[in-house]
Amino acid sequence: MFEARLIQGSILKKILDAIKDLVTDASWDCSPNGMSLQAMDTSHVSLVSVSLNSDGFDKYRCDRNLTLGMNLISLSKIIKCAANDDTIIIKAGDGGDKITLLFEAQNESEVAEYEIKLMNLDSEYLGIPDTTYNVTIKMPSNKFQRICRDLSQIGDAVTISCAKDGVRFGAAGDLGSGSIRLAQTATSDKPEDSVTISMQEALCQSFALKYLNHFAKATPLSAQVTLSMSPDVPLGEPLLFNVCVVEYNISDNDDENPSTIGFIRYYLAPKIDD
């Protein structure tokens, strides 16, 4: 028996909006600790990892580990039927071939019930090592989204150059070039507006904007985004250090005492040099 009740159903809507254009089919792994999903995009170039802790749910019951394989486009269509302030309840029986979704209106006068067929997915699961990254940039998520969108007008790739005092995002193409430089901010009254850089050494790497624009669809989930990267390492070293991680924390929207209940992490390798 699996049952998870999320008072802020809009969080689930935002998560699906952040992944459905990147990944078509994926499995939710449900355990007593929470729900998680890991999948590569269809071209196997980027990887998305979602985690929701059990204590982020108002009610959470998972008697035994379950894998719920499903088409995310279908799930997204059904989740869109929930109002933003609805409570969403996910239910699954042991060994069933479907899950039930209940949408409870805030005044509890209306309950909608939908079922989704499950799929048996034979997906490749990648082991992500626990890596220390040399450069970490924390910045407003809407600023990152805007930069990626604007630079897509100029070129297909963004070059991120990071030094202690700031970070520069640049792109070049047939029509010309463009760049945006963000300085590290002093301690701010509004932490959501701050730009924070933590680095061991300077870095300059290029990434495909097509994927970063997909990742930026998670912007409504979090006011800040974290980019973690490491400079190119010499040949023979493990390649994994080159991967960029774009992370959005998932918080409940408790205005007085917000807490992190999970995350979305996207992984992308730098573009291959021309």
Partner: peptide, 14 residues
């Protein structure tokens, strides 16, 4: 179109 490394070359398959 930007040419990209495949992530399966980076992470171990389990």
């Amino acid at each position: 179109e930007v040419e990209q490394h495949f992530l399966s070359n980076y992470f171990s398959t389990s």
